[in-house]
Structures are given as structure tokens and as C-alpha cells.
């Protein structure tokens, strides 16, 4: 028998009629289902998170490529299909990037708010699914203990934890050393203080330029209106600071400030 697992014309025709055109090969879905269920089985307590959505049909549609997968959680396993021939209880639709961002985001609402992901139907189901998937926390040491026994697994676990801590510490130290070298020894990068001072100077310069621009503008307008040049009232009081001149800009008639 042929191991050809793809859907043939009949099912493809059906998909075109009902769901979008691109069908993920059934063998890939079967493999994904097996892998995901093996992962869920590693955290039996976390798996209970799926309980509120047992038997719910959750469709995820990837815009652009038009692929659809359907998830149906159950007490025995999470079933994954391509197009499932029933109206989903909850349809999550989004661009590949939007869906990936939502999967990774801590606050899923923000992705929904941005409009890159849409949810149709019962949104509580999507929330429960996200919570259940996010709540899976596999105790690898415990899994290892089943294979190697508690003492060995514990030692390995300690080893891994020490290695992770060492890695974190080393990364921190390395970062600080590199920073110091680049700033102080090599003078390749400015230090924090130099940078702050430089940024403050840039701000001052920008303000000065704006003030100068305003003053030049005012003078130019004054030059265009020779009739207004002999207004004696403003003379004498017109000694305004550059800042005030900038604030009043063009409204300040007369050459007083000049």
C-alpha cells in the first residue's frame, strides 16, 4: 500500500469548498499531535488546565497561507486535525507573525487590541487554551528520575542548576568587563556620564537654534513692515531675553527686542 498520506482530490475539493485551500499534510498533523500529547503527558497536573475546554472545537487560521488547524482537547489527548467538518466553537485568525507574537506575549490582550489577531466565537475558550498551554511546566528532574533513579537525577539537576547559575553570572561579569574595557580602557565608547552630558548639550544646542530661528524670523518680518518701525512706545521696554523672544515669536511686533 502506498504510504501516501496526503489528502486526494476529494478531500482537497472539500477543503476548497469549506475551509481555506492549503491543507497541512495529515502525516505532519499526526506527528504534531503525538509530540504535543507526549509533552502534555509530562505534566499531568498542568494537563488538567484543559478540562474546561474538553470537546471544544478550536480552529486556528493562518492568514496569508490560508492554513487551518483544529484543536479538540479531551481527557485522553489533544486531537489535532486540519479542516474539521464542524463549525468551530472558537476561531482564532491571524497573520503568522501576529499569532506567534500572541503565543509569546505575556498579555495576550495587547495583540488582540492591535488587530493582528481576531477571535470569533467564544473568546473564553481561546483564553482557557492559552492559559492551559502556558501553564504546562514540565519537571524535567522528575522525568529523569523515572529513568535514572532519584539520586542520579537529583545530582544531574543540581549540576544543571549550577551550570545555569554559572552561565548567568559569567554572562553578567563578561558584560560588565566588556563595557568597562570599551569605555575606560579603549575609549571606544563613551561612558554613561559622558553620554548624558553630550545628550544635554545636544538639547541645549537644539533649543538655541530654535530661538535663533524665531529671532531671525521676527527680524525678517520687521524688515518687511517699515511703517511699523517707528513705534516709540515699545522702545526702552523691549529688552527681552532670547527665551521670551522665542516664546512670543512673530506676535511681538516692533523692533524693540532687536
Amino acid at each position: 500500500m502506498s504510504p501516501d498520506s496526503d489528502l486526494d482530490e476529494g478531500v482537497r475539493r472539500d477543503q476548497e469548498g469549506g475551509a481555506p485551500g492549503f491543507g497541512i499534510p495529515a502525516a505532519v498533523l499526526a506527528a504534531a499531535e503525538a509530540a504535543l500529547n507526549r509533552y502534555i503527558a509530562l505534566d499531568p497536573e498542568g494537563a488538567l488546565g484543559f478540562e474546561p475546554i474538553y470537546g471544544r472545537i478550536i480552529a486556528i487560521e493562518v492568514e496569508g497561507i490560508g492554513a487551518r488547524i483544529t484543536l479538540i482537547p479531551g481527557p485522553d489527548r489533544l486531537q489535532i486535525f486540519g479542516a474539521y467538518d464542524a463549525t468551530p466553537d472558537c476561531l482564532i485568525r491571524g497573520t503568522p507573525l501576529g499569532l506567534a507574537r500572541m503565543a509569546a506575549a505575556r498579555r495576550k490582550e495587547s495583540e488582540l487590541g492591535s488587530g493582528s489577531v481576531e477571535i470569533e466565537g467564544d473568546t473564553a475558550i481561546a483564553q482557557d487554551l492559552g492559559k492551559a498551554l502556558g501553564g504546562l511546566d514540565v519537571d524535567w528532574e522528575e522525568q529523569l528520575a523515572r529513568l535514572l533513579g532519584d539520586p542520579v537525577a537529583h545530582q544531574l539537576g543540581e549540576g544543571v542548576r549550577a551550570a545555569v547559575q554559572w552561565g548567568r553570572r559569567t554572562t553578567g561579569t563578561l558584560g560588565a568587563d566588556l563595557k568597562e574595557y570599551l569605555e575606560e580602557e579603549g575609549r571606544l565608547l563613551p561612558s554613561r556620564y559622558e553620554l548624558d552630558a553630550f545628550l544635554a548639550d545636544v538639547d541645549t544646542l537644539r533649543d538655541d537654534v530654535e530661538r535663533l530661528e524665531a529671532r531671525v524670523g521676527r527680524l525678517a518680518r520687521a524688515a518687511d513692515r517699515p511703517s511699523a518701525a517707528h513705534t516709540p512706545k515699545t522702545k526702552g521696554r523691549g529688552k527681552k531675553s532670547g527665551k521670551d523672544a522665542a516664546r512670543h515669536g512673530g506676535e511681538d511686533a516692533g523692533p524693540g527686542g532687536a
Partner: peptide, 10 residues
């Protein structure tokens, strides 16, 4: 009634 061939109609 309709039908769907799988694996080339096997």
C-alpha cells in the same frame, strides 16, 4: 452522498 479518495483510491 459524496466520497473522498485517500492514498490514490486504495
Amino acid at each position: 452522498c459524496d466520497y473522498f479518495n485517500l492514498s490514490g483510491g486504495i
